[in-house]
Simulated assay, not measured.
Amino acid sequence: MEQVLQQRLAPARLQPYTAAAGSPRAGIRLYQWNVEVSGALYEALHVIEVVLRNALHEQLSQLQLKRHGGGSWLDSPFPELTDRARSDIDQARRRAQEEIARKQSPPVRGGAVQWIVPSEGDIVAQLSFGFWRYLLASRYTHTLWLDALRHAFPELTPQTLAYVEGPVKRLHLLRNRVAHLEPVYSNNIALDMQNMTTLLGYLCPRTQAWFGSTRVPRLKAAIASRPKIGP
């Protein structure tokens, strides 16, 4: 079976695992563990991303109401946003429209698909973790953070952007590694778990408690099952 896996998983892909573990057989065990812990991390990061984006979206909606009396901040992005952020919103809107069109019943031959305007929720769901991470960049300290985004973290004291920017940046990088099937065995998974728990505590202690009783045990079990590697 070892030879089969070496062939099917590809020697080049297994090489970092083999080098870290000390032998091909141990490398396969490390690869298997990497798959398992990546699954636990992906489940946890799913929660983090959804909770974070909803909290930030809520505060941006409140800022839109305060500044303009209504409407959607996605339809008239704030002037503070970078060109990249505006482009991300436009792309998210297009993806949301395409997703709605894809889910519609196939039109009659020669007919046209009815074009439905996506809701705010549709567009928000298409914005990447990276979009929300960069909303928490230091460039927004004296604008969007001060005016709105700090209120998404009611338990953060003092409300200093750097206290959330760092953890969110690290979790975004972790999310990309997991999503692209890259090795995470060299990560400090316990620290990653702590970053998630801390961030949720700033956002909502009750959600943090739920996360602690549902996702944290899975992460701890994955950490504990790590195979011994090296000489």
Rank of each mutant, 00 (worst) to 15 (best):
Q97T: 09
D90H: 14
P79N: 03
I116F: 09
S76M: 10
Y17E: 02
L63C: 04
Q15Y: 03
A92T: 04
P106D: 06
I48E: 04
R67G: 01
S61M: 03
R29I: 04
G121H: 04
P77V: 00
A96D: 11
L52C: 10
A19L: 14
Q32Y: 11
H57T: 12
N54D: 09
W33E: 04
V117W: 08
G70F: 05
H57K: 09
R53E: 05
L52A: 10
R94M: 14
S105T: 10
R95G: 02
V37T: 10
A26V: 03
Y17W: 02
R25T: 13
L65Y: 04
G121Q: 11
F78C: 06
A112W: 11
H46T: 14
T82K: 07
L63E: 08
G27C: 12
Q59F: 02
Y17P: 00
S76P: 00
A96F: 12
I89R: 09
Q114C: 11
Q104H: 04
V51R: 08
V37Y: 04
R86F: 01
R67L: 12
S119C: 08
K66I: 01
H68T: 08
W115V: 14
E80I: 00
W115K: 13
K66A: 15
G71Q: 04
V113E: 11
V37G: 03
R29C: 12
I48K: 03
W33Q: 03
P107F: 14
H57W: 07
R86I: 10
A55C: 07
N54H: 11
A101Y: 06
A44S: 15
Q104A: 13
H68D: 10
S105K: 13
W33S: 08
G70I: 07
Y42I: 01
A112M: 12
E80N: 01
P79D: 06
G110H: 12
E36R: 10
Y42W: 05
E58V: 03
Q62N: 11
A85D: 13
D88S: 10
Q114S: 14
E120K: 03
S38C: 06
Q114D: 10
G22C: 01
Y31C: 09
P16L: 12
R95I: 04
L56D: 11
P107D: 11
D75N: 06
A96W: 13
E36N: 10
P107A: 13
L30C: 08
A92G: 08
L30E: 10
E99C: 05
D90L: 15
W115A: 14
P24E: 02
G69I: 07
P16T: 11
S87T: 15
Q59A: 05
R25F: 07
D88A: 11
I28A: 04
Q114H: 15
R109C: 07
A20Y: 07
R95M: 14
N34P: 07
I89E: 08
L41E: 07
G22M: 06
N54P: 03
S119T: 15
R93N: 07
R67M: 04
S38M: 02
E98D: 15
A101D: 07
G70H: 02
G110D: 12
D83G: 11
